[in-house]
């Protein structure tokens, strides 16, 4: 005979889940309003498209790389700058925690691309989940989410049939930072706009120093961050080559040979970001708890007081 599920208090369950995430290393976690997600996300990309009886979406964020990482060359940063796998590991464990503690189905939300849509469409928008869960707000840097204390985070989501009370989105948006507003007033660009290698960002800031318009040329950004998209082009160029020398050059030159290495190891340099907008972002790099050094210093201060 199947055991009956224990009675679950939604608030207590939520707290237990958020505590679990924090214990495992998440800097922030919250519950997104499922109704709001369903109103905003397009059909085919809503939580129920992954988990038919989903009742709650939990979003969690982990910190980015160490403070030292911001000083390395871009070509190295591409390999190790992102820390999303830590977020995924926590979300994976969280789903097991929910099922074992509350005997209710839960699933780690795959952060991957939609097989039916090509290489630029994700199954779900983890960004939307995180924003609605109140752990990040859209920035002028192509809507990358920023947090006033933790700066720049990587997000993961958990879906569950457990009903949990949702959080609200953040009351204030930390972007643009006051120093960015000052620069914008002088040169018409924020640092993220000015230093983007493909100039994919632009926008305006209103009189009150808040975001007015954000323009993001995602296709240009993809040229820096989705290098795997080069591969079909390279093969096509090789097939068009008129001489063996041209063909050899296309397939075996250093740049293109590197792509096969990156593919074989699933390298972040092939899949991830270029980081140049975040490297110059004062919130990403200098938020009070943005990196391990700052967090350790804050913890030490807390200990003293």
């Amino acid at each position: 005979m199947a055991q009956q599920k224990p009675e679950t208090d939604p608030k207590q369950a939520k707290q237990a889940i958020l505590d679990y995430c924090a214990r495992k290393g998440a800097l922030a976690a919250g519950v997104a309003d499922l109704t709001a997600i369903n109103r905003i996300a397009p059909e085919g990309h809503r939580p129920a498209d992954i988990m038919p009886r989903v009742k709650s979406v939990i979003s969690l964020g982990v910190g980015g790389q160490t403070q030292g990482a911001w000083t390395v060359p871009a070509k190295a940063m591409g390999y190790f700058g992102s820390t999303e796998t830590r977020a995924y590991a926590i979300a994976y464990g969280c789903a097991f925690f929910i099922e074992s503690r509350f005997r209710t189905r839960a699933v780690y939300c795959p952060p991957d691309l939609d097989n039916e849509s090509g290489p630029r469409v994700p199954l779900q928008s983890l960004k939307l989940h995180a924003e609605l869960a109140g752990i990040g707000a859209r920035s002028l840097a192509g809507d990358i989410l920023l947090h006033p204390e933790f700066g720049y985070m990587y997000f993961a989501s958990v879906f569950t049939e457990l009903e949990l009370p949702p959080n609200r989105p953040m009351a204030e948006n930390p972007c643009p930072h006051s120093s960015c507003v000052e620069m914008y007033r002088q040169v018409g660009q924020t640092p993220c706009m000015k230093f983007c290698p493909v100039q994919c960002l632009s926008g305006t800031i209103d009189e009150a120093g808040r975001q007015s318009e954000m323009h993001y040329d995602m296709a240009k950004c993809a040229e820096l961050s989705e290098q795997y998209e080069s591969l079909p082009l390279i093969l096509a160029e090789a097939m068009r080559a008129e001489t063996p020398e041209e063909q050899e050059s296309v397939l075996m030159d250093p740049d293109n040979s590197m792509l096969w290495y990156k593919m074989s190891v699933g390298s972040g340099g092939l899949l991830a970001q270029c980081f140049e907008c975040m490297r110059v972002c004062p919130i990403a790099t200098r938020a009070p708890l943005a990196d391990p050094i700052r967090r350790a210093e804050a913890a030490a201060e807390d200990g003293e007081t």
Partner: peptide, 29 residues
């Protein structure tokens, strides 16, 4: 879906990835 993916490939400038080389540390684009 088909048309969008082809348009994305046609827009894609593979060489732009190389703009990252030389950046980092105190060197900005």
């Amino acid at each position: 879906t088909y048309i969008r993916n082809l348009a994305e490939r046609r827009h894609f400038v593979a060489n732009n990835f190389q703009r990252l080389l030389g950046l980092g540390g105190n060197r900005r684009f």
